[in-house]
Amino acid sequence: MGGPLLEVRDLTVAFGPRDMPLRVVDGVSFALDRGETVGLVGESGSGKSMTALSVMRLVPEPPARIGGEIRLDGRDILGLPLREMPAIRGRDVGMIFQEPMSSLNPVMTIGDQIGEAISLHGRMTPAARRARVIELLTLVGMPDPEARIRAYPDQFSGGMRQRVMAAIAMACNPSLLIADEPTTALDVTIQAQVLELMTDIRERFNSAILLITHDLGVVAEICDRVIVMYSGRIVEEAPVEALFDAPRHPYTRGLLKSVPSFSETRERLYQIAGSVPPAGTIREGCPFRARCPLRMPRCAVEMPPMAAHGPGHRAACWATAEEAAA
């Protein structure tokens, strides 16, 4: 069982005509070890959700075409026939989605929905399954779980539904938990509880967590490493401290500067000029160049490769690569 738990190599998700493909994920490579929490950060449309859905193969193919390699525990996920995916989903990889309000089936009790996640991957007597559902609900901090299993999603608040989602995702103790913006739709106080729950889950089961978010505060709080995506590509990857201390990509620098801070008083919040180009529309050079303060002629022609900036720290930028070399 050597090697990383999840290894993504040169992942590409493309839509549209083959001769003019729209690559919403373009050459993404990263790895995740057991017990590690990695944040996947980027603006809406940067391809982070597509990357995560590709690991589950939940991106509808067709119309999407997925290329590259995804290895989970050494197994080649993209090489598997689609009909073998249900056995992996939920058992090896659990997923929590962004919208707790719409991600639960409104006409099934939450007990049935969690119970289904259990019984899909193993036989169990109804009594044993019920006990396990109650155990999971207790684990995610649901008050009065015995009574709640017969309730419907509409009887719960957003935070409570996200706990139910977590219970579903953790039902089979998956080795990898993918959380796609699990706190975005929640109040700040509830956010903290859900984050605490995720750290708790990781410690208890030694699961790896891939946390997709655009909230750098969340990343600082629970992640070990961060991957920054921009327009379908990884632009920087670093351990959390290194990223916050010395970001090497101008996009990351911009992101960090746009986070409001209590310690300084600024007149106005920093804002990266311009807007994200729709993923896949920039086919040559660096996708960030139009908004980049460090732009140089080379950026328009050639996509910068990932350059090392320290242990586990890499960034794709011509300008900062020169800084580092100098």
């Binding site: 589950m56 939940l58 249900p86 989903r89 719409s102 899909l120």
Partner: peptide, 26 residues
């Protein structure tokens, strides 16, 4: 196209189950 159908797939439900248990009932 609803989110809970995606959740059902993410749990590992096969298409038949996704359609008849989750989609059709709704």
């Amino acid at each position: 196209g609803r989110d809970y159908v995606r959740t059902a797939r993410a749990k590992g439900a096969r298409e038949g189950r996704v359609i008849y248990r989750h989609a059709l009932r709704n």
